[in-house]
């Protein structure tokens, strides 16, 4: 298990695929760990990509600072992983908490990236997200990791995924429960206590940017992704049908296919972001569908678009 060194801490990472070539770097969500990207690693390596996964400070097999974790340190840790890849084109992909770290990296080191995929993420804490975050933190403090998982599972995954798993949830939760420590999760959550919105800095992200948002994402709804779409010039928003916040866990084949197509389009210079809005197909590999013109993609009902 290789490690990188960030001041006195160790960052666990893994690099798969060929020695050289375009690379994808994945940044975990709050309660995730590197192994959860294995389906993505397999799909992208098969297409000739290098894939780097790692555990952020406070996660998985990386060191877990006792009291404080700063987001600046997480960005620095991500930078160390990207440095390992040398000069090859790098596509950076982060989900939720990891999406914020990826955005922050893209703001300060955009020239190092060939493309950015921001999934289920945000640039500012809306009142709903702030209050939800506080409630989740209180849940962690009073009920432990297991209770936090109990809250997140139904919030972040669809009935279609949960239904067949109901009798198996304890087993599904166990690895996450073993890997995550309460104090480390709490430190990760508390790294948002002094969070400053990134919105004003988003226009400085000039690279091609794919924004992925679950149709029914309850935790980070469409409006938060709309901020990214409007502020990042070369971006496109793709709505994943029937998906919630954790669509990367629920629809890995579809999401990996979207990431692959994004990278191939960028590398072949076919990519045109244009702040466009799309609907992802139900099946991996099928074409994207343009969001119907004249309708408001921020609404759940087919309401006419009101120009803002």
């Amino acid at each position: 298990m290789p490690f990188l060194t960030l001041s006195s801490y160790r960052i666990r990472y893994e690099l798969d695929g060929p020695q050289h070539g375009p690379a994808y770097v994945f940044v975990n969500g709050l309660t995730q760990y590197a192994e959860l990207w294995s389906a993505y690693r397999d799909a992208l390596v098969e297409k000739g990509f290098r894939v780097a996964t790692f555990d952020l400070l406070g996660q998985g097999a990386s060191d877990k600072p006792g009291l404080f974790i700063s987001q600046d340190d997480q960005v620095a840790a991500l930078g160390l992983v990207i440095d390992v890849l040398g000069d090859d084109p790098v596509f950076l992909c982060g989900i939720s908490f990891g999406g914020v770290i990826a955005l922050r990296y893209a703001v300060t080191h955009g020239s190092r990236l060939a493309g950015l995929a921001a999934m289920s993420t945000f640039a500012e804490l809306s009142p709903q997200l702030l209050l939800l975050g506080n409630a989740l933190r209180a849940g962690l403090i009073h009920g432990g990791t297991s209770y936090l998982q109990d809250l997140l599972l139904p919030m972040n995954l669809s009935d279609a995924w949960l239904g067949p798993q109901l009798g198996n949830l304890d087993t599904i939760k166990r690895q996450g429960w073993l890997t995550n420590d309460v104090y480390a999760l709490q430190n990760l959550m508390e790294s948002f206590l002094d969070f400053k919105p990134l919105t004003a800095q988003l226009p400085s992200i000039k690279i091609p940017t794919l924004i992925l948002n679950g149709e029914f994402d309850f935790l980070t709804p469409r409006t938060l992704h709309e901020t990214l779409r409007l502020q990042i010039p070369d971006s496109a928003l793709v709505i994943i049908p029937r998906a919630f916040h954790a669509f990367t866990l629920e629809k890995p084949a579809l999401t990996a296919a979207l990431l692959l197509r994004f990278a191939e389009d960028v590398l072949s210079k076919k990519w045109k972001g244009n702040r466009s809005v799309w609907i992802a197909p139900e099946t991996a590999g099928d074409p994207l569908i343009p969001f119907p013109e004249g309708h408001d993609h921020l609404r759940a009902i087919p309401a006419p678009e009101v120009h803002r």
């Binding site: 600072p65 006792g66 009291l67 404080f68 962690l140 403090i141 009073h142 432990g144 990791t145 309460v182 104090y183 709490q186």
Partner: peptide, 27 residues
């Protein structure tokens, strides 16, 4: 997980913020 909260509150308290590096080192 719950008992630890008092220690976190104390160690991260504003009173100890000027000593943040030293407190972190002790922890």
């Amino acid at each position: 997980g719950r008992v630890m909260q008092a220690q976190i509150l104390f160690l991260k308290s504003t009173d100890l913020l000027p000593l943040r590096e030293q407190v972190t080192s002790v922890v």
